[in-house]
Amino acid sequence: MREAHWVHLPELRAILALLEGEEGRTRIVGGLVRDTILDLPHAVSDIDIATELLPNDVTERAREAGIAVYPTGIDHGTVTLRHGTVVAEVTTLRQDVETDGRHAIVRFGTDWVADASRRDFTLNALYADMDGALFDPLGGLGDCIDARVRFIGDPAQRIAEDGLRVYRFFRFSASHGRETFDPDGLEACAAVVGKLGHLSAERIGHEIKRMLGLPHVASTLRKMVQIGILDLPETVVAALRSYEWQVGEPVLSARLALILEDADAGELQARWRLSNEDIGSATNLRAAADLVARMRLHEAVYRYPGLAKDALDVAAVRAGWGEAGKMAVREKLIAVEERDFPLTGDDLVGHGLPPGPALGRELKRLERLWIESEFALDRDELLSKVEKT
């Protein structure tokens, strides 16, 4: 890893040097190390760092060096540093003293093996120094390279420490485990079905949303349904699998749109704490797909600009189109250019209609005529069709 791009980032090296990285007291841990080994992309705005230094010491050093510091989790030993484009969560080495499955009481220390042992999966307990040299205290390198998502130690104990690790097990199995499931981990997850009610909807929803943004997740979702961790009808799971097979780059909004085939938007938003933007995008895409499926292509393009490609993908899955049928619809859809409706309410006022509800209804009627003409009617032609009664 000594040739990894991040090894040579001045801002990251400055942070590590500030925290005595050259002396081995501070190392990068987790995602950046794991993804570098697997040659996967990983943003430098999402770096985890482990250190022997206490949070107050980290804070003081960063402030003295002019590096922005935020006490994002200082009670648990974590502060966030921002230096240029680099954003790093710096956490003091820890070991759990007590946990209730949601919150842990931790003790700070200098034992790297103890810190590694409290993490979730072996592929996430990999460290690297500021020059990219690997430190692998638990032998997780083999699991990482072989795409094995394996709990550290006893899976049941890891889950007892934090029930969210059930969802993380499935997410990492999808993102880094080729959608295969460690038998011991799967058994431990199945054993806690119905016992995770203490987890907040926000935490669960965050994991589910990250899963739904992955390139491949349909088999993982099916496994979660099979053991009872996730409640989705088989028809929806099958649709998600079909969608995944058909598209090169699956998107979150399309998967949510397919899930909404058998779920109320408000209930789904509450269950997974989806943002208004997330649920709004999915709802709009579902509506656009419905228009495409009914071959109302001009209306789909007009009412939902920018959604044509994803709407076609969703419509093809919902309608069960084959590749040839989908290609035929795509050709017609590509030929439709996005256009603005050429009339406004002011045009109708200027044409003699008084402001009011009747004007609004007439404007909608003319809009419908324009859409049905496949955008052929121009402004003057539309004005000639105004009904003043």
Rank of each mutant, 00 (worst) to 15 (best):
H5Y: 02
P10Q: 13
L12I: 05
I15G: 04
A17D: 13
G21F: 03
E22S: 08
R25N: 05
T26I: 14
V29S: 09
G31R: 04
V33C: 04
R34G: 15
L38N: 03
S45W: 05
D48H: 08
D48L: 07
I49A: 07
E52D: 11
E60K: 09
E64Y: 09
I67Y: 06
A68Q: 11
A68C: 01
G77Q: 12
V79Q: 07
T85H: 05
E89Q: 14
D96I: 15
V97P: 07
T99P: 01
D100N: 15
A104K: 13
V106L: 11
R107G: 03
V113K: 14
L123G: 00
L123I: 01
A125L: 02
A128M: 05
V149A: 03
R150I: 06
F151C: 11
I152A: 03
A156E: 02
A160L: 11
E161L: 04
L164Q: 08
L164C: 06
F170D: 00
S173Q: 02
H176K: 07
R178A: 13
D182Y: 01
D182A: 05
P183T: 02
L186Y: 12
E187M: 00
A191Q: 08
A201T: 10
A201E: 14
R203A: 11
K209F: 01
K209T: 15
R210G: 01
R210C: 04
R210A: 09
M211K: 02
L212Q: 10
L214Y: 10
R222G: 01
K223R: 15
M224P: 02
M224Y: 06
Q226L: 12
I227W: 08
I229R: 15
L230I: 10
S242D: 15
Y243R: 04
S253G: 09
I259N: 06
R273D: 12
L274G: 06
S275Q: 04
N276M: 12
I279A: 02
A282P: 05
T283M: 13
L285F: 00
D290Y: 04
L291K: 05
V292D: 01
R294A: 13
V301H: 06
V301M: 12
K309H: 15
V314H: 10
A315S: 10
R318W: 02
G320D: 05
W321Y: 13
G322T: 12
E323V: 13
M327W: 02
A328W: 07
I334L: 09
A335K: 14
A335W: 12
E337L: 10
L343G: 03
L348I: 09
G350A: 10
G352M: 06
L353F: 07
L353C: 07
L363E: 15
K364P: 08
E367Y: 09
L369G: 14
R379A: 11
D380W: 02
E387F: 06
